[in-house]
């Protein structure tokens, strides 16, 4: 087991290295001058050169990368050009906020997706299946920002039950687990949950139907198990795949939906990326992408390990 874990960690290393390289290169691949947003357009060449030196842009690439990576390793992702605050703290806060949103959306999406999927799989080709599948397809294909706006119109403008934007009262940008913040979370989480819900419902339906068609299900009935008992076996068979899907969905949602976070002014990574792009804040962009990419790598690792632990058929070597 330890060996297996070590191996997986080792496999992750080159990915991390590659990810960092790409993030680093972003600044230099991006068209235009990285200093364009900090310097006035009429800055002298001397000022420009001094700034280049200050940001380290004048050194050879490999040196720049090593320095950048070394700092990143120590949690220093540089300063945001636009706000002059450390990128690391901005990113961490945004990741935290997106994490809350993503987890809430995944939980909601999973609860309903599993429900629809299992029911549809059990009653395949019946009207229940068709209803559940239709709902899932609608969920996948409806544009999210549009759904978000519809929800805002219904629950905020018309009914006045839930706030439309922000993370908490009076522009709060940190999470506090109270009713107010939960109310602010409700609409964006619901909107976002539609993404994993559709995918989970479809995956689960196929999975459950496939498991139910296997011989061992008949054998379980033959030995006298009740439908509930058979269902337990179906769940255990479906769990490894379902959890892998959940992990990956969480990963995608962590990238933060730029559209949803913008519609709801949710101060997460999507919102941050949006700002960084529009303000040409390259260190911020770089840092955000790096952190997100690393998150994704770690999440993949966790999913892999959990799946292996749950599924005895996967070799643990």
């Amino acid at each position: 087991m330890t060996l297996f874990l070590l191996r997986r960690l080792l496999y992750a290393l080159p990915i991390v290295l590659g990810v960092s390289l790409v993030c680093f290169a972003l600044v230099h691949i991006a068209p235009g001058d990285p200093l364009i947003s900090v310097l006035p357009p009429d800055a002298t060449d001397e000022v420009r050169a001094r700034m280049m030196a200050a940001y380290g842009f004048d050194r050879p690439y490999h040196e720049q990368f090593l320095l950048w990576a070394w700092r990143a390793l120590h949690g220093d992702l540089g300063m945001s050009i636009a706000t002059a605050r450390p990128v690391a703290s901005e990113v961490i806060r945004a990741v935290g906020n997106t994490l809350i949103l993503a987890v809430a959306a995944t939980v909601i999406g999973f609860a309903f997706g599993l429900l629809f999927g299992v029911v549809a799989g059990y009653f395949r080709d019946s009207w229940i299946d068709k209803a559940a599948s239709t709902l899932a397809v609608v969920g996948v294909s409806v544009p999210h920002y549009w759904l978000g706006m519809v929800l805002v119109i219904i629950f905020s403008s018309e009914l006045g039950w839930l706030p439309a934007t922000g993370m908490g009262p009076s522009g709060s940008s940190g999470w506090v687990p109270d009713l107010e913040h939960l109310k602010h979370l409700a609409l964006p989480a619901l909107t976002m949950s539609v993404i994993p819900m559709g995918i989970v419902a479809r995956t689960t339906r196929a999975l459950v139907a496939e498991i139910l068609s296997q011989d061992f299900v008949g054998a379980l009935r033959a030995k006298g198990l009740s439908e509930g008992g058979v269902f337990r076996h179906v769940v255990k068979n479906a769990a490894p795949t379902a959890i892998a899907v959940m992990g990956l969905q969480l990963g995608y949602l962590l990238g933060g939906s730029i559209l949803i976070e913008t519609v709801f002014s949710w101060p997460g990574t999507g919102f941050l990326l949006n700002n960084a792009i529009f303000q040409r804040d390259l260190p911020l962009l770089q840092g955000t992408i790096l952190v997100l990419a690393l998150f994704f790598v770690v999440l993949n690792l966790v999913v892999d390990v959990v799946q292996t632990l749950l599924d005895p058929r996967i070799q643990r070597a």
């Binding site: 296997q214 011989d215 061992f216 054998a219 379980l220 255990k236 005895p312």
Partner: peptide, 12 residues
């Protein structure tokens, strides 16, 4: 059953 590999639950 004919095929024990199919008639036994693979994850138990």
């Amino acid at each position: 059953f004919q095929e024990p590999s199919l008639a036994l639950d693979p994850v138990y």
